[in-house]
């Protein structure tokens, strides 16, 4: 229970221990604690950011999908329109072609008819001459009576 040199020794030991603790114990551990706190904060911030980015990505994907759908609809509409146009055009062309063919056919028929008529007329003339020859029992000079025969034939 006596106060003696122990007191001063203890003070010195105390000072040395505190100095050691202050220099070699506290700072490294505190640094590690702070570092971990920073790390965790960064991790949480990154997670938050990731979530936000995911949300943004989702929105973007939705927008893209919407745009794509719109575009597809537009393309379909355009295709429909173009189809209609092509159909109309084809119809018009076909109609024109049909008209042309029909006209050509009419013309040809007309021509054929005329030719047949002409031929018939000539045959008739020949027959008429032959008949006349038979009737007259003499040969008719074809060239001499050609004019007469022609007018005859025309009357047929």
């Amino acid at each position: 229970m006596n106060i003696n040199l122990t007191l001063i020794s203890q003070m010195i030991a105390f000072a040395v221990f505190v100095a050691f603790c202050m220099k070699y114990v506290w700072p490294p551990i505190m640094k590690a604690l702070d570092e971990r706190a920073t790390k965790i904060a960064e991790g949480l911030a990154a997670a938050e950011r990731g979530q936000q980015e995911q949300e943004i990505g989702r929105q973007k994907a939705l927008e893209e999908m919407k745009a794509a759908k719109e575009k597809a609809a537009e393309i379909v509409a355009q295709a429909q329109k173009r189809y209609n146009e092509v159909m109309d055009e084809a119809k018009r062309d076909a109609q024109g072609e049909a008209d042309r063919i029909r006209n050509a056919a009419h013309a040809e028929i007309e021509q054929e008819t005329n030719r047949a008529r002409e031929e018939l007329r000539e045959r008739m003339a020949t027959l008429a001459v032959a008949a006349a020859e038979k009737v007259l029992e003499k040969e008719v000079d074809a060239s001499a009576h050609k004019a007469l025969l022609d007018s005859f034939a025309k009357q047929l």
Partner: peptide, 18 residues
């Protein structure tokens, strides 16, 4: 006191933020 400092110093030596 030395025991305390050795114990803490040992941990402080190999301290990790992980």
């Amino acid at each position: 006191g030395v025991l305390f400092l050795i114990g803490f110093r040992k941990v402080a030596d190999s301290v990790t933020a992980g």
